[in-house]
Amino acid sequence: MARAGRKRKSGDRYPSGDLRRAPDRGTPELRLQRALGTGLLTSDQSKLWANGNAMEAAEDLSMSARQGVDAVGRAHVAGFLQHPDKTGDQLVDAGRLLFKLYWAHYSDLRGMAVSSFYRALVSGGAIRGGASDDGGRWERIEEALNLRLAMLDKCGTDVRRAVTSLCIDQHFDAGPAWLDRLIAAKTTGMAKLRAESPDVEWCWPQDAFLAGADVASFNRMHHAVIGLAAIA
Protein backbone atom coordinates (compact mmCIF):
# COMPACT_ATOMS: atom_id res chain seq x y z
CA MET A 1 0.00 0.00 0.00
CA ALA A 2 1.42 3.37 -1.02
CA ARG A 3 2.22 5.90 1.66
CA ALA A 4 0.15 9.05 1.83
CA GLY A 5 1.83 12.13 0.48
CA ARG A 6 2.67 15.23 2.45
CA LYS A 7 -0.39 17.12 3.64
CA ARG A 8 -1.22 20.31 1.77
CA LYS A 9 -0.26 23.38 3.78
CA SER A 10 -3.16 25.55 4.86
CA GLY A 11 -3.39 29.26 4.16
CA ASP A 12 -4.32 31.78 1.48
CA ARG A 13 -3.04 31.05 -2.00
CA TYR A 14 -2.45 32.91 -5.24
CA PRO A 15 -4.53 31.98 -8.34
CA SER A 16 -1.52 29.92 -9.46
CA GLY A 17 -1.85 27.77 -6.35
CA ASP A 18 1.29 29.06 -4.65
CA LEU A 19 0.96 29.73 -0.96
CA ARG A 20 0.83 33.40 0.01
CA ARG A 21 3.60 34.34 2.41
CA ALA A 22 2.34 35.61 5.75
CA PRO A 23 3.25 39.28 6.34
CA ASP A 24 6.26 39.85 8.55
CA ARG A 25 4.88 41.71 11.55
CA GLY A 26 8.22 41.80 13.33
CA THR A 27 9.15 40.40 16.72
CA PRO A 28 6.83 40.98 19.70
CA GLU A 29 9.41 43.36 21.15
CA LEU A 30 9.51 45.42 17.94
CA ARG A 31 5.71 45.58 17.76
CA LEU A 32 5.54 46.67 21.39
CA GLN A 33 8.19 49.32 20.79
CA ARG A 34 6.17 50.69 17.88
CA ALA A 35 3.01 50.72 20.00
CA LEU A 36 4.92 52.60 22.69
CA GLY A 37 6.10 55.12 20.10
CA THR A 38 2.54 55.75 18.92
CA GLY A 39 1.09 56.06 22.41
CA LEU A 40 -1.04 52.92 22.03
CA LEU A 41 0.61 50.73 24.66
CA THR A 42 -1.68 50.13 27.64
CA SER A 43 -0.49 49.93 31.24
CA ASP A 44 -1.34 46.20 31.36
CA GLN A 45 0.71 45.55 28.22
CA SER A 46 3.59 47.57 29.66
CA LYS A 47 3.56 45.46 32.83
CA LEU A 48 3.55 42.21 30.86
CA TRP A 49 6.43 43.44 28.73
CA ALA A 50 8.41 44.56 31.78
CA ASN A 51 7.93 41.11 33.33
CA GLY A 52 9.38 39.38 30.27
CA ASN A 53 6.06 38.36 28.68
CA ALA A 54 6.48 40.25 25.41
CA MET A 55 4.66 37.66 23.32
CA GLU A 56 1.57 37.78 25.53
CA ALA A 57 1.68 41.57 25.70
CA ALA A 58 1.81 41.86 21.90
CA GLU A 59 -1.18 39.59 21.27
CA ASP A 60 -3.86 42.26 21.64
CA LEU A 61 -2.03 45.24 20.19
CA SER A 62 -4.15 47.66 18.23
CA MET A 63 -3.91 47.22 14.46
CA SER A 64 -3.17 50.95 14.32
CA ALA A 65 0.19 50.30 15.96
CA ARG A 66 1.41 48.90 12.64
CA GLN A 67 1.41 52.46 11.33
CA GLY A 68 4.33 53.15 13.66
CA VAL A 69 6.90 52.14 11.06
CA ASP A 70 7.65 55.79 10.30
CA ALA A 71 7.20 59.23 11.82
CA VAL A 72 4.27 60.35 9.68
CA GLY A 73 2.46 57.12 10.54
CA ARG A 74 3.00 57.69 14.27
CA ALA A 75 1.70 61.24 13.93
CA HIS A 76 -1.41 59.90 12.20
CA VAL A 77 -2.08 57.28 14.88
CA ALA A 78 -1.64 59.92 17.58
CA GLY A 79 -4.32 62.05 15.90
CA PHE A 80 -2.03 64.93 14.97
CA LEU A 81 -2.75 64.97 11.21
CA GLN A 82 -5.91 67.05 11.39
CA HIS A 83 -6.84 69.28 8.47
CA PRO A 84 -10.19 70.80 7.43
CA ASP A 85 -9.95 69.67 3.80
CA LYS A 86 -7.79 66.53 3.91
CA THR A 87 -8.11 63.26 5.80
CA GLY A 88 -5.32 61.83 7.89
CA ASP A 89 -4.95 58.95 5.43
CA GLN A 90 -4.44 61.41 2.58
CA LEU A 91 -1.73 63.23 4.51
CA VAL A 92 0.05 59.98 5.40
CA ASP A 93 -0.02 58.85 1.78
CA ALA A 94 1.36 62.22 0.65
CA GLY A 95 4.20 62.02 3.18
CA ARG A 96 5.16 58.47 2.26
CA LEU A 97 5.06 59.22 -1.44
CA LEU A 98 7.40 62.16 -0.84
CA PHE A 99 9.77 59.82 1.02
CA LYS A 100 9.73 57.33 -1.85
CA LEU A 101 10.33 59.96 -4.51
CA TYR A 102 13.13 61.63 -2.53
CA TRP A 103 15.12 58.52 -1.70
CA ALA A 104 14.53 56.90 -5.08
CA HIS A 105 16.10 60.00 -6.60
CA TYR A 106 18.92 60.69 -4.15
CA SER A 107 19.99 57.39 -2.67
CA ASP A 108 20.34 53.65 -3.10
CA LEU A 109 18.18 52.18 -0.34
CA ARG A 110 19.64 48.69 -0.67
CA GLY A 111 22.46 49.48 1.74
CA MET A 112 20.35 51.17 4.44
CA ALA A 113 19.32 49.64 7.74
CA VAL A 114 15.63 50.42 7.34
CA SER A 115 12.51 48.86 8.80
CA SER A 116 10.86 45.80 7.25
CA PHE A 117 8.12 48.06 5.89
CA TYR A 118 10.54 50.00 3.71
CA ARG A 119 12.54 46.88 2.82
CA ALA A 120 9.28 45.53 1.40
CA LEU A 121 8.88 48.68 -0.68
CA VAL A 122 12.39 48.25 -2.04
CA SER A 123 12.01 44.55 -2.83
CA GLY A 124 8.63 45.19 -4.42
CA GLY A 125 10.06 47.80 -6.75
CA ALA A 126 8.30 50.82 -5.23
CA ILE A 127 11.72 52.25 -4.35
CA ARG A 128 14.95 51.16 -5.95
CA GLY A 129 18.48 52.38 -6.47
CA GLY A 130 20.89 52.23 -9.35
CA ALA A 131 21.59 54.45 -12.31
CA SER A 132 19.83 52.47 -15.05
CA ASP A 133 16.99 54.22 -16.86
CA ASP A 134 13.65 52.56 -17.56
CA GLY A 135 11.85 54.46 -20.30
CA GLY A 136 12.38 57.82 -18.65
CA ARG A 137 11.27 56.60 -15.23
CA TRP A 138 13.96 58.50 -13.37
CA GLU A 139 13.10 61.73 -15.17
CA ARG A 140 9.46 61.28 -14.11
CA ILE A 141 10.54 60.66 -10.52
CA GLU A 142 12.69 63.79 -10.54
CA GLU A 143 9.88 65.85 -12.02
CA ALA A 144 7.35 64.61 -9.44
CA LEU A 145 9.78 65.23 -6.59
CA ASN A 146 10.72 68.73 -7.73
CA LEU A 147 7.04 69.64 -8.12
CA ARG A 148 6.33 68.69 -4.50
CA LEU A 149 9.44 70.38 -3.13
CA ALA A 150 8.54 73.56 -4.99
CA MET A 151 5.05 73.47 -3.48
CA LEU A 152 6.56 73.12 -0.02
CA ASP A 153 8.94 76.02 -0.66
CA LYS A 154 5.96 78.20 -1.55
CA CYS A 155 4.50 77.39 1.88
CA GLY A 156 7.58 78.82 3.60
CA THR A 157 10.80 77.67 5.24
CA ASP A 158 9.11 76.46 8.44
CA VAL A 159 6.75 74.24 6.47
CA ARG A 160 9.54 72.78 4.31
CA ARG A 161 11.67 72.00 7.38
CA ALA A 162 8.77 70.42 9.28
CA VAL A 163 7.78 68.13 6.39
CA THR A 164 11.42 67.19 5.82
CA SER A 165 11.80 66.24 9.47
CA LEU A 166 8.56 64.25 9.56
CA CYS A 167 8.62 62.55 6.17
CA ILE A 168 12.06 62.61 4.52
CA ASP A 169 14.50 62.20 7.41
CA GLN A 170 14.86 58.57 8.43
CA HIS A 171 12.89 58.24 11.67
CA PHE A 172 11.59 54.71 11.21
CA ASP A 173 10.87 53.42 14.71
CA ALA A 174 11.37 56.57 16.82
CA GLY A 175 11.78 60.31 16.41
CA PRO A 176 12.00 63.06 15.47
CA ALA A 177 12.41 64.33 19.02
CA TRP A 178 9.69 66.99 18.68
CA LEU A 179 7.15 64.35 17.63
CA ASP A 180 8.16 62.07 20.50
CA ARG A 181 7.59 64.96 22.90
CA LEU A 182 4.12 65.58 21.49
CA ILE A 183 3.16 61.91 21.74
CA ALA A 184 4.43 61.77 25.32
CA ALA A 185 2.43 64.88 26.20
CA LYS A 186 -0.71 63.40 24.72
CA THR A 187 -0.42 59.95 26.31
CA THR A 188 0.73 60.95 29.78
CA GLY A 189 -0.43 64.55 29.99
CA MET A 190 -3.96 63.96 28.75
CA ALA A 191 -4.30 60.89 30.98
CA LYS A 192 -3.27 62.99 33.97
CA LEU A 193 -5.78 65.71 33.10
CA ARG A 194 -8.59 63.18 32.73
CA ALA A 195 -7.70 61.51 36.01
CA GLU A 196 -7.70 64.83 37.83
CA SER A 197 -10.91 66.11 36.21
CA PRO A 198 -12.91 63.16 34.85
CA ASP A 199 -16.01 65.28 34.26
CA VAL A 200 -14.19 67.63 31.90
CA GLU A 201 -14.06 66.70 28.21
CA TRP A 202 -10.35 67.15 27.48
CA CYS A 203 -9.51 67.26 23.76
CA TRP A 204 -6.40 67.23 21.61
CA PRO A 205 -5.12 69.51 20.14
CA GLN A 206 -7.28 72.13 21.86
CA ASP A 207 -5.85 71.27 25.29
CA ALA A 208 -2.35 70.35 24.10
CA PHE A 209 -0.57 72.97 26.17
CA LEU A 210 -2.47 72.06 29.34
CA ALA A 211 -1.27 68.50 28.77
CA GLY A 212 2.34 69.68 28.68
CA ALA A 213 3.05 70.03 24.96
CA ASP A 214 5.76 72.58 24.20
CA VAL A 215 5.02 75.40 21.80
CA ALA A 216 7.92 74.66 19.43
CA SER A 217 6.90 71.02 18.92
CA PHE A 218 3.25 71.96 18.52
CA ASN A 219 4.12 74.55 15.88
CA ARG A 220 6.36 72.09 14.04
CA MET A 221 3.45 69.67 13.77
CA HIS A 222 1.15 72.47 12.61
CA HIS A 223 3.57 73.43 9.85
CA ALA A 224 3.98 69.79 8.78
CA VAL A 225 0.23 69.42 8.37
CA ILE A 226 0.10 72.56 6.22
CA GLY A 227 2.83 71.19 3.98
CA LEU A 228 1.33 67.71 3.66
CA ALA A 229 -2.04 69.18 2.75
CA ALA A 230 -0.36 71.23 0.02
CA ILE A 231 1.16 68.17 -1.66
CA ALA A 232 -1.69 65.73 -0.98
Results as ranks from 00 to 15, higher is better:
residue 168 I to S: 04
residue 153 D to F: 06
residue 212 G to C: 14
residue 83 H to P: 11
residue 224 A to V: 07
residue 232 A to V: 08
residue 50 A to F: 09
residue 126 A to F: 13
residue 90 Q to D: 14
residue 159 V to C: 05
residue 153 D to P: 03
residue 117 F to H: 05
residue 35 A to K: 04
residue 69 V to T: 09
residue 147 L to M: 11
residue 6 R to Y: 05
residue 215 V to D: 11
residue 70 D to F: 12
residue 146 N to Y: 07
residue 179 L to E: 03
residue 189 G to L: 15
residue 163 V to G: 00
residue 13 R to C: 06
residue 194 R to F: 02
residue 157 T to W: 03
residue 182 L to T: 00
residue 100 K to Q: 07
residue 7 K to G: 15
residue 192 K to N: 05
residue 19 L to N: 01
residue 27 T to A: 08
residue 9 K to C: 09
residue 151 M to R: 07
residue 120 A to P: 02
residue 92 V to C: 11
residue 56 E to Y: 00
residue 228 L to V: 06
residue 163 V to T: 01
residue 105 H to M: 07
residue 150 A to Y: 03
residue 88 G to Q: 07
residue 158 D to Y: 03
residue 156 G to I: 01
residue 104 A to C: 12
residue 232 A to G: 10
residue 216 A to L: 14
residue 200 V to M: 09
residue 174 A to I: 13
residue 168 I to E: 05
residue 163 V to E: 01
residue 115 S to I: 04
residue 218 F to P: 12
residue 115 S to G: 15
residue 69 V to R: 10
residue 211 A to N: 08
residue 29 E to G: 04
residue 80 F to Y: 07
residue 213 A to Y: 05
residue 132 S to T: 00
residue 83 H to C: 13
residue 148 R to E: 02
residue 85 D to E: 15
residue 217 S to R: 02
residue 175 G to N: 09
residue 196 E to S: 05
residue 194 R to V: 09
residue 91 L to R: 00
residue 215 V to R: 14
residue 151 M to L: 06
residue 26 G to P: 10
residue 161 R to F: 14
residue 85 D to F: 12
residue 198 P to G: 02
residue 129 G to Q: 04
residue 8 R to Q: 15
residue 65 A to D: 12
residue 79 G to S: 13
residue 92 V to F: 04
residue 56 E to I: 04
residue 10 S to D: 14
residue 164 T to V: 05
residue 164 T to M: 10
residue 67 Q to I: 00
residue 14 Y to M: 14
residue 55 M to N: 08
residue 9 K to A: 13
residue 80 F to G: 08
residue 74 R to E: 12
residue 146 N to I: 00
residue 127 I to C: 08
residue 171 H to F: 08
residue 216 A to C: 09
